[in-house]
């Protein structure tokens, strides 16, 4: 069963008088454990598709399925719960909570999930070690580099052991070395935990790590290619 299935998805935005097609009859399947890059120039529809899969955008028509659950008709609360328990988000801007330490940022989502404190603490330490931040657990974001902050954001995204990670331009604010490290981390998590990754990017370096590249233009899928990952 595919981890993600989009069937004939359409989404239109209004920009003043203009109607812009964000998604134009998009159909896509991503298998469990997949590692897919959505590639498009700005305004091509990759972020819109990512947000639609994550339940952040309402679609005009079509169907979106996560595993065996159709999500496009779910209410706000149900979608929030789905994101909390099944989906991990990584954004271009790390958007950590500035007053919490790295560990507390990771624990925050787990607390919302209702994970008991001792388990929360153990799991957050384990994940931070996994993303290479051992020893920096008690630092606040302001005292960390961009790469370190993005790693905390990744740790936060995977803390709840989601089956699907959606990453929107995760390397956009990182230098090439840090970007490579982050992508290697994604690959490792994908391989070790069989977590499905869907990454929106127009960064060629990132695409090199993907096993499949879906190219979009003007809200449509124009190319869908399997490739050997780097």
């Amino acid at each position: 069963m595919p981890a993600v299935r989009c069937v004939d998805v359409c989404k239109t935005y209004r920009q003043g008088e203009l109607e812009v097609k964000g998604l134009d009859h998009v159909s896509l399947e991503v298998g469990e454990g997949g590692f897919v890059c959505l590639s498009a120039p700005s305004g091509g529809g990759k972020t819109t598709l990512l947000n639609a899969i994550g339940g952040l955008h309402r679609i005009d028509s079509g169907e979106i399925w996560l595993a065996d659950r159709r999500i496009d008709g779910l209410g706000k609360g149900e979608l929030a719960s789905l994101r909390l328990h099944q989906i991990g988000f990584v954004f271009q801007a790390y958007n950590l909570i500035p007053v919490l330490t790295a560990r507390e940022n990771v624990e925050f989502v787990m607390e919302v999930q209702g994970v008991p404190p001792d388990q929360r603490r153990a799991r957050s330490m384990e994940i931070l070690e996994e993303v290479g931040l051992k020893g920096l657990e008690d630092r606040r974001p302001a005292k960390m580099s961009g790469g370190q902050q993005q790693r905390v954001a990744v740790a936060r995204a995977i803390a709840s052991r989601p089956t699907l990670v959606l990453a929107d331009e995760p390397t956009a604010n990182l230098d090439s070395h840090t970007a490579e490290q982050l992508m290697e981390l994604f690959v490792e998590l994908n391989t070790r935990h069989e977590t499905t990754f869907v990454i929106a990017t127009h960064d060629q370096r990132v695409m090199g790590y993907a096993r499949r590249i879906v190219r979009m233009l003007d809200g449509r899928i124009v190319d869908d290619t399997e490739q050997e990952a780097a």
Partner: peptide
């Protein structure tokens, strides 16, 4: 607002 948007996207409910 932006920070709240992020945590809402992560699944934290507006009620919380």
């Amino acid at each position: 607002t932006k920070e709240f948007g992020i945590v809402t996207a992560l699944g934290v409910s507006p009620g919380r």
